[in-house]
């Protein structure tokens, strides 16, 4: 009697491999902890647990660091630490909204463009992306923000209007690759509609690209928000690191750097952590590296 050895082969998906790889990436994990810490702060501010006194005038003009005011006070006696913490919420709110919507819009348009590549639909969408990309970014954003001055979401609209093209181009390329695969041809053969093929069978297979692209867009949105707020085109009623840096442009002449340092250090920390997180995620999700 022959004995047959039965071995169980564990099936590994792209996601489980990526998770394993990411969890082994020390830089990625540290950056993730930082990002989560910032996210907790943002939630705390949103829920009214942190920095509720960001707009109060409590201290004297330009007070130094103390146990009461960790980063001192600004020109009108507001607590710089509270304002810097509150600005984390602004950065996360703008980053999340812009990253999610711009990536989603880019994914849909990119998928359609890629699926219909070589047709007039693709031509029109490529032309639209080309036009938007050819306009200098900050001029374009400034124009939209200026035109929508009354709206608190002008900055969001402006960024979404320009950031989706990057995701779109990436997804388009991936879809062109995927639409020639056998499973797509099979779907055609059994009569699945074109939209069904795009949204049920192709687009889900671009998720790894979208995830990485969303993190890149998130960082770009935060940086743009700070720059626009610095220029007076960003946050309307609230606080932002950009506004704090704009305030500090008068203060540094007087030798008072707390506003500038608080905003710069917090922004640097978040942007750096998110960049490293994004890099690690990209490495983990890259099919060529995941094996």
């Amino acid at each position: 009697m022959n004995t047959v050895a039965i071995t169980t082969v564990r099936r590994e998906s792209l996601w489980s491999k990526a998770f394993y790889k990411f969890s082994r990436d020390r830089t990625g994990m540290i950056s993730l902890v930082f990002v989560l810490f910032y996210m907790l702060i943002a939630f705390g501010v949103t829920l009214g647990w942190l920095a509720t006194d960001w707009s109060d005038v409590q201290g004297g003009k330009w007070e130094g660091m103390s146990t009461t005011y960790w980063f001192g006070t600004n020109m009108i006696g507001q607590d710089i630490f509270s304002r810097a913490i509150y600005s984390t919420k602004t950065a996360f709110e703008v980053g999340l909204v812009v990253a999610l919507i711009a990536t989603a819009v880019g994914a849909v348009i990119g998928a359609i463009s890629g699926f219909f590549s070589g047709t007039w639909i693709d031509e029109v969408l490529l032309w639209l992306m080309g036009v938007l990309d050819s306009i200098p970014f900050y001029l374009f954003v400034a124009a939209i923000v200026f035109a929508m001055q009354e709206s608190p979401y002008a900055m969001h609209v402006a960024m979404i209007s320009t950031f989706w093209t990057g995701s779109s181009r990436l997804v388009r390329g991936e879809v062109i690759k995927l639409r020639g695969l056998e499973y797509v041809e099979a779907a055609h053969a059994i009569g699945v509609s074109e939209l069904g093929i795009i949204f049920r069978h192709i687009l889900p297979n671009t998720t790894h690209i979208l995830l990485v692209q969303a993190t890149i867009t998130f960082v770009a949105a935060i940086k743009s928000e700070v720059i626009l707020s610095f220029l007076g085109l960003g946050v309307k009623d609230g606080m932002s690191w950009g506004l704090m840096i704009a305030e500090s442009s008068q203060e540094v002449m007087a030798g008072f750097f707390n506003n500038f340092l608080a905003a710069s250090v917090l922004m640097f920390g978040l942007v750096m952590a998110f960049n490293m997180f994004s890099d690690a995620l990209q490495d983990a999700l890259d099919p060529r590296k995941v094996s």
């Binding site: 005038v57 600004n74 020109m75 007076g232 506004l243």
Partner: peptide
């Protein structure tokens, strides 16, 4: 910036 601080 100054006008905004005055408002605040």
């Amino acid at each position: 910036v100054t006008a905004r601080l005055m408002f605040e």
